[in-house]
Computed example of a mutant assay.
Amino acid sequence: MSETTRTYRPRRDRVWFLRSRAYTIFVVRELTSVFVAWTIAYLLLLVAAVLDGALPAFAAFAAQPWVIALNLVALAATAFHSVTFLNLAPKATVVRLDGWRVPAFMIQGGNHTAWLLVSAVLFWVVTR
Rank of each mutant, 00 (worst) to 15 (best):
V50P: 02
V34E: 07
V67M: 10
V28W: 03
F105L: 08
A48R: 10
A104G: 06
F61G: 01
F80N: 00
L55V: 15
L51S: 04
Q108M: 13
H112M: 12
L88K: 13
N111C: 15
V125K: 00
F35T: 04
W66E: 11
A69K: 05
A41M: 00
F80L: 08
Q108D: 02
A49L: 00
A41P: 06
V94Q: 14
V47D: 06
A57P: 03
L97D: 03
E30Q: 13
A69E: 10
A62H: 09
A120M: 09
H81L: 08
W115C: 09
I107H: 06
G53R: 03
F61A: 10
A79N: 05
V36H: 09
L43I: 11
S33E: 12
S33Y: 13
Q108R: 15
K91M: 07
T127N: 11
R29G: 12
D98V: 00
V121I: 13
L55M: 14
A79F: 12
I107V: 15
F123Y: 14
V27C: 00
P90S: 08
L44T: 11
P103C: 06
V83G: 00
L31H: 09
L43E: 13
F58Q: 06
I40W: 08
V34S: 09
M106Q: 13
T113L: 15
A59K: 09
F105Q: 11
A41T: 03
A48E: 06
V83H: 05
V73D: 02
Y23Q: 14
D52S: 15
N87D: 13
A76F: 08
A89Q: 11
V27G: 03
W100H: 11
I68K: 11
V34A: 15
L117V: 15
A77T: 07
Q64Y: 01
E30C: 03
L122T: 05
Q108S: 12
P103I: 10
S82C: 04
A54I: 04
A74K: 06
F26Y: 15
L75D: 02
S119W: 05
K91S: 14
T93S: 09
W124Q: 01
